[in-house]
Amino acid sequence: MTGPVIDVRDLRKSFGSTHALDGLDLVVQPGEVHGFLGPNGAGKTTTLRILMGLLRADAGSVSLLGGDPWRDAVALHSRLSYVPGDVSLWPSLTGGETLDILGRMRGGDDDARRERLVDAFALDPGVKVSAYSKGNRQKVALIAALAADVELYVFDEPTDGLDPLMSEVFRTEVAALHRAGRTVLLSSHVLAEVDAVCDRISIVRAGRIVESGSLAELRHLQRMTIVAVTGHELHGIEDVPGLADVSYDGTTLRCAVEPAHLDELLSHLAAAGVVSLESRPPTLEEMFLRYYEQADGAR
């Protein structure tokens, strides 16, 4: 496929007087593992439900695998698999029955592949869903989605309820899909998850995308944390633009610096005879907090 797998432009959706989506844009290219990040209530689930043809968009254009997710829902769904955010299964069926039935409804499940996933996630498929823990129900939904050999995988908060070990199994599986050239859209508010598996992310807030790009690009926009010890006293540090959270006790400087002004800071440090220097790229957590600080400050 040449065009993007998901191409959403100026998407709007209201529920009564609540604007769940307020002009959202989202582009996911083939072969990309795309993180869809945002706090609860930002519009992630609404976006995914529109992509699944469950909700109808009020305005904007949506293209999914080259089709219209509302009109072509049934045809498109045999080319993708989806794990909803709030997994609920039929209590009277076993995990194994549920996997079979969901696989048949999508069509084209691979038995060997499913067996391998059941082992990897350590699921007992002979147990009724009513006896499963929340984590085990989540595993059933994940295995059902991963067992399908399709072009696009869409996960809404996939590791919700999973223990760390199983979250790691999930990340391994997503990495395998990535290597196989499949496209993955993964919504989450757990930043570590996105950090570990995604090569591009979109950050959503209040129904619009506030930032989109590769992790490297986004980091580039962000402040580095610097801890430096100098031989002499530093002078003129207050003239360096783009510094924040500065503390200086005569020998040790702690600050955050925007990448554009790193050069200036370093020349000041060099002039003062830098003895030790630590620099750290921002964690996604810090980037995320920063976006919200900016957005709140702007209001």
Partner: peptide, 26 residues
């Protein structure tokens, strides 16, 4: 003890209609 069930679904269940019959039969 929790009764164990079958590990796979009978082949006639393959869509919402057959699934509903399986769920509602009892």
């Amino acid at each position: 003890a929790q009764r164990r069930g079958r590990r796979s679904a009978p082949s006639w269940i393959s869509g919402p209609v057959s699934l509903a019959w399986r769920l509602d039969r009892t």
